[in-house]
Amino acid sequence: MKKKKVGLAGNNVLLLITVLLFIGMYVIGCIIYANKGFGHFQTFLNILITNAGLICVACGMTCVMLTGGIDISVGSLIAMDCMILAVAMGRQGLPCIPTVMLVLVIGIVFGLVQGYLVGYLGIQPFIVTMAGMFFGRGMTAVICTDQVSITQQENAMFYSWANAKITLPAFLGYTNNKGKTMVPFIRPTVLIALVVVVAIWFMLKYTKFGRSLYAIGGNEQTARMLGLNVRRTKLLAYVLSSFLCSIGGVLYCLNTMAGSVQQAKGFEMDAIASSVIGGTLLTGGVGNVLGSLVGVLINGTITTLVNSNGKLLSSWANIATAALLCFFIILQSIFAKLKDGRK
């Protein structure tokens, strides 16, 4: 009985390590860069603000990865979303809400096509979403090759969303060297991202669809034999991923207030990395969005650490991420071996 307890803990241990690693990294940052304000609560909030889009995308990615699939189209889809938002609002002067709705609908359609190809025609997810990746990036350039920005004059409502501050209780803040109290704040984007995390967490845990994702990742053949609708579940997983990605795209655009062809390049890899660091297995069946959230935070912390240093090339953040990924993949394989060894 005792041995079995360890076995169950395996997946939780991975998540625990992720959390501890995040806390450890953060504390080290606070100590080393204390003079640069790393320890301020606002620094943490800034990580959330910058990465609100990535959090949404990583949630969708986790759902797809749970089925054993992958979605590498998300970076391009974000670029396309941003470009549509920028051109529609910045150039054509379309109102804000319909444009955002349009982008979300496009995300769903995008996901329907990819999901149909993967789920019903049984094509490799990598190939399908790679096609989606090329399509998205290509379409972005077709819409407009310039960098288009959205300013206050063009769309006041979108601008006000982007700059809205939600202030937190003042005691969490600090007094700067001019004696002024800096009250910590977040943007609405953070709230949306956190709502997405909670919603997806709830869905994965408490709905048949969510559990089906795990079952399919555990063994697709078996899931079919157990009477689950594997094809529809897979389709929906990709729809969900593209939809969350479009929400992420809107949040991303609220940060950058612009659209450009080169935007969000490699974003899909950040999302995959966050999921993996957060304990999602590439082979599917194991994973959790809370882990993915921590994964995004770790990613953000690395970037902030490198930026705080000031002298380091920002590419060092990539190298740190690479090292972390290796670490986690090795860790995962060790746990997998331990599990096999027990049988």
Binding site: Y214, A215, G217, M225, G227
Partner: peptide, 22 residues
């Protein structure tokens, strides 16, 4: 019930009993 076990190893025993009809 098939010869080879057709259940999901990554889910709990209870889930395997009830999956699809929770």
């Amino acid at each position: 019930v098939y010869q080879e076990v057709n259940l999901c190893p990554n889910l709990s025993v209870a889930e395997n009993l009830f999956i699809g009809r929770e």
